[in-house]
Design a protein around this nucleic acid. Structure first.
Lengths: 173, 173
DNA sequence: TATTGTTATACTCTATAACTATA
DNA sequence: TATAGTTATAGAGTATAACAATA
């Protein structure tokens, strides 16, 4: 799925949705919260690309842009931590955003080993436009969900905390 | 994160969780259903590996095993469709399961071009053991969630349908 | 002519390890 | 000695394209 054959490598979304196939038995999968979550996430992931087709950005890159926008001078290492990435991953991500001219590395005034990440003017424009689109899209989905949407986000956050907690307990250090 | 250095390439889970970092501003991300969904999915994904540590299986491979178990004679192409994969992806997935001796390809009685996928005896044992663990784990999470868990799965399924529908509408053919 | 599975290839993402420079 | 970032490399995952066999 090449959203822009013109300019850059561009992130790829999975081609096919994870829809239930008629006539197929799913057994346990139909009972699992985790599988329902995966299906929903897959659907929203694909939908994100649809909504932001004009921008050629992945959800991850959008998140990185927002984090830099909200935290001027953000270090790469912190970006990695916030996004669950290895340092080398944050490097690539930053490189991509820098090549686009949306983010620039400046010397960190406190620690000479670090960069401070900052949005450029064009990066700021991107974030603003993207944010508007993403917000509208998210709102539309919530509205379509109706009263079910109420509390869904909170429940998901609760669920994430619970799952993370059990993971931390079982995998010390 | 090599769960088994002994036998196979084994799938890698992301190393770090997607936890909110203290002192960081997340801006829009905190308001988005999609981001909450991503965080929850990431947490459950990591948690799956924790719960099934002894088995060396990814959620995807578990799903494939279940689908073959529930639909004996399943063709590779259908497996691909059910899992949102390209045919070549289903091939690799099947190869991995076959190498493990959990799945075998038999001639399809109706269509000589196709394989029918079947579980081996050891594959069946794997699925049974895995299913028990995964079920227990899922139940524990649901219980910890409390009354919030009620309806969450249905809401997620509803959300997936909505997002898929809008994607289909906007991306014809 | 279309479809199933395969082979070969390429690209993205992420991780590891070794390196530099700063702390 | 530890940390921030970089470089180089390797692995898994998925996509494309061309091919054989069959429908």
């Amino acid at each position: 799925m090449n959203r822009s054959a013109t300019h850059s490598p561009a992130p790829d979304a999975p081609d096919a949705p994870l829809l239930p196939v008629a006539g197929l038995a799913y057994g346990v999968l139909d009972d699992l919260l985790g599988y329902a979550l995966r299906r929903a996430q897959n659907a929203l992931y694909l939908d994100f690309f649809r909504a932001t087709e004009a921008f050629d950005v992945s959800p991850q890159r959008f998140a990185a842009l927002v984090l830099v926008a909200e935290n001027p001078g953000l270090r790469q290492g912190l970006l990695a931590q916030a996004m669950g990435l290895h340092r080398s991953g944050a490097l690539r991500l930053t490189n991509w955003l820098a090549q686009r001219g949306w983010v620039e590395r400046r010397d960190d005034p406190v620690d000479a080993r670090s960069w401070g990440l900052h949005l450029t003017a064009s990066g700021l424009a991107q974030v603003k436009a993207l944010t508007a689109v993403v917000r509208a899209h998210d709102a539309a989905l919530s509205q379509a969900l109706g009263k079910q949407a109420t509390g869904l986000k909170q429940t998901l956050e609760h669920l994430a905390l619970l799952a993370n907690a059990s993971a931390v307990i079982t995998r010390p250090a």
